[in-house]
Every structure is written in C-alpha cells, then in structure tokens.
Amino acid sequence: MSEDLSSLKRRPWGMTLRQDTWWIVPLVVFLVLTSFVVYATWAAFQNEHYVHRNYLSPFYSPLLFTGGDMGISGDGHQHGLFGDKPGWWLLPFFSPALLILPFPAGFRMTCYYYRGAYYKAFWADPSACAVGEPRNNYLGENSLPLILQNIHRYFLYFAILFLFILAYDAFSAFFFDNDGDGKFTNFGVGVGTLVLCMNVFLLTGYTFGCHSLRHLVGGWMDIFSSTPAKTKCYDCVSCLNRQHMVWAWCSLLWVAFSDVYVRLCSMGIWTDVYFTFT
C-alpha cells in the first residue's frame, strides 16, 4: 500500500505549467530514432549492396558468408568467416545483418543514455520533466521486462569486439585494387575510407564513454590514489562519459550514413573518389 502523499492532483498527460517548448526534444528523439530503426530494418533485409570494392557496410560487418549463393565474392575482404549461407536457417528470408545487428542494437537499447531518451519519447514516462504522464501504473526497471536492462555490460563486451572488427574494415578500406587482379594491395585513401574511419572514431568515443565501462574500469573502487593506472583509465572514460549523449547521436547517425554511402556506391548511384599512393 502506498500512502497518499500528494494532495495536489496529478496532472494528465502533457499538462504542465512549464512555459518553454519542452515537447521539442522528445519529438526530435522520436523522429530520429524511428527513422533510424525503419532504415536499419529495411537495410538489414536487403541482403545486397553492402560491399563496394574494399568497403564493407558496418551493418553487415563482420562479413559472415561469402559463398556463391550470397551474390558477392567478398572481394577485398579476407575475413569472410564462413562459406555458404547456413543450412540451419529456417526462415524464408535471409540476411547476415540479422545475425549481426542484434548486438549493437542491444548495446544501444540498454544504454543508460538511450534508455532515458526513449522512455520519454516513445513511452511518455514522462514526456519531459515536470510534465503529466498518460499512465497511472509504473514498474520502472524493477521487474520484467526492463529489469533486463541490467545486462548492459555484456552488450558492452560485444560492442568492444565490434570496434576491432570495424577497425579492421576501416583498415581494409585503405587498400585498393588498381590493376583489377582481385588483390587489394594498393595503399590509398577514398571518401569511403574516411567515412569508415570516422565511423570507428565515433563508435569508439561512444563505446568508451559507456557508464558500465566507467564502472568496470574503476568506478567500483572507493580509493583511487593507490592505483594510478586504473585511475587514469577511469578519468578517460569519465571524460568521454560526460558527453555520452553527443557521442551516442553522432555515432548513430554516422553508422547509418556509412551504410548509405556503401550502398549507394555499390548501386552505382554515388561514385567513390579515391587516390592511391602505391
């Protein structure tokens, strides 16, 4: 039983005495996140146009399958991990992105910043500070399903692994095939290279500013002065963490743009400009 501690009646949804335009932020979050999810879902189901020469879309990285029935040869990428599309796949449609995207999606879904943002924008819980809510009942992250948010750090481990994979992709994006012999050995830089490098940079800033990481590298300690190395790590993560929101949005938008870039180049709509030095 909850004691009745408020004699002022709670305000209905959207009601407040705030005079500022409090609804703009949740609305923008709603629109941007929705657009991203729609695009990412569409892109994941395409199962084509994710490789352009030595560029690989982050939505399809790591390159899992390079068998004949995948429609690509995996040129430029030595890390096609498996051969053909797996025999155990039962669904009528298939795309390797469906095996890849749950990990970064899980990382962002359980991210402390995004949680606060999408609870407001999608669930109005609340829509903004000191603004009335639509529902009376409330469970918070205290019980299922949201209690699962507590596994955020496991998604973090995968996110760090993905950083290495994407870094490898970005590295590969420096090596072009000038003579068309199928060997990507000519060192150079293209717009796509820069796009993929930027992607790794932003994702690194986002991942290494993670609240869970901040805890794991040193936040769990009460005394810092006796462990200077850990303290340095903690300070670095804390520094990134202060701008976690900015990193979150920039990296999100850029990862989508990276996919768009590779896709449009692969479709021949955009032309990638590059120079080689060797």
């Binding site: 402390y112 910043y113 949680r115 606060g116 609870y119 407001k120 819980d125 609340p126 500070c129 000191a130 409330y138 918070g140 992250e141 205290n142 019980s143 949201l146 209690i147």
Partner: peptide
Amino acid sequence: QGIGYCNITKCCTKV
C-alpha cells in the same frame, strides 16, 4: 529502496 524504479530521466540532475 527501489533503485530499479529509476528510469534515468535525468530530471533530478536538471533541477
């Protein structure tokens, strides 16, 4: 103390 009820609105920090 119900720390799980907090859904990170950050309104407390704002005010």
